[in-house]
Amino acid sequence: MASHRHSDPPSDPALRVKALESLLTEKKLLEPAALDALIELFETKIGPRNGAKVVARAWTDPTYKKRLLSDATAAIAELGYSGMQGEDMVVVENTPAVHNLLVCTLCSCYPWPVLGLPPVWYKAAPYRSRAVIEPRAVLKEFGLELPESIEIRIWDSTAELRYMVLPERPAGTEDLKEDALAKLVTRDAMIGTAKVAGPSR
């Protein structure tokens, strides 16, 4: 249940960029698709990508995992990661019985301090509406086919609450150390549109 009733406006510079972008594309001085394509190249270059390290710590330290699932904001800060703007983090765990998927109808609701830049599809209208209505079909398009027996839970981010998925640790990684595990964790796995694949070799 969201406690606020309207959408919190982005920061001043973010609004100024939106103003530039919308005016210039309206005047056809810029092509939106070309702009998105360039921004997409920087997806992995924005913000400290700490989410993967949080996941790897939770996989290797059961007491940390417990803290992460009960108070994610504090557990993430424990690793020295901050940069959130007052909103709380909630981490939801994937299990053999439950698969979690994040969505937000607003592009500003994304935990970029832990996940980096939201992918373009995450901000696109079809994902935002269909993830809620037909998550199984959406996941299938991402190449993730889940049996009917697995429950899918959808988490709609708000301005005050940001979610992150704690994916399942893949089989065959029992010998891997935390650093190596963190390298396996992808952004999509922490959004819930993918599972973490085991080591390729």
Binding site: S11, V17, L35, I39, I46
Partner: peptide
């Protein structure tokens, strides 16, 4: 590299 998404958008613009 960028600290926040709007910075990448300003760069790309």
């Amino acid at each position: 590299v960028f600290a926040e998404p709007w910075q990448a958008e300003a760069f790309a613009l």
